[in-house]
Design a protein around this nucleic acid. Structure first.
Lengths: 115, 115
DNA sequence: CTAACGTACAACCAAATGGTTGTAGATGAG
DNA sequence: CTCATCTACAACCATTTGGTTGTACGTTAG
């Protein structure tokens, strides 16, 4: 699933940092690699994960491979999460409504906070 | 890191579904297990992951263990993502501002901030 | 042209994931 | 009390992850 890949890609500090770095101005993979306490190949793999999630793109420039964050993908990631939360919250709200209007047998407190 | 655990916990369809289910009304672990094509123990592990991430809590009731989503934690998760995106977007905005006002092309980086 | 650089990729490894089965301890129903 | 149920947990397994090193290849600088 796309959301799975997205969230998994973002569930790592190094990868989030790469996204942050490459939001403004591209950076070559080797340039990125200098910034982290790991090998070049390791950073390459992190970039690959971000790429598969659609969060960054690579663009060749001479012998360098420039990484740049897809700002739109970041926005889409946020929106996906937003929608997820909205669905969840929607369920709570609908249930609250049901409980206040019908009063079923299970009868637990419905002190769900509304805003 | 807390964000890592949170995003990792949410990067799985089954776990997101558990969160959704347990937002309204608690469900025992065995009840949950009936809903998925996997063993009881597997669901137990998923619940444990969500618990470690602070997304759900368990509460004993007789011989059952009732799982319920911590609505507040879900909200906090969203806010964490929001802040992440805000930071990222903030960077873009600041850079855009810089570019439009100075419009130079000399060396721009050397911001050795890690964090 | 040659050497250095940036990249890609394979092979390998340890640890974590996501699943299984099996066993054992509490607890509630009858 | 006895038994079925719910849970916890250990042991095991296959796959993935996150890292390493080594090698090969294209490109640019000198």
């Amino acid at each position: 699933m796309v959301v799975d890949r997205l969230l998994h890609a973002l569930a790592d500090t190094t990868r989030r940092d790469i996204v942050r770095r490459c939001l403004v101005g591209e950076a070559s993979v080797s340039r990125l690699a200098e910034a982290y306490p790991m090998s070049f190949a390791a950073v390459q793999k992190h970039v690959a994960v971000l790429e598969r999630a659609g969060l960054v793109t690579k663009q060749r420039s001479g012998r360098e491979q420039l990484v740049s964050t897809d700002v739109d993908a970041v926005r889409r990631a946020r929106e996906a999460l937003d929608q997820l939360e909205a669905t969840w919250r929607g369920r709570v709200d609908r249930m609250s409504a049901l409980l206040t209007e019908t009063d079923t047998e299970g009868n637990q407190n419905d002190e769900r906070d509304q805003h």
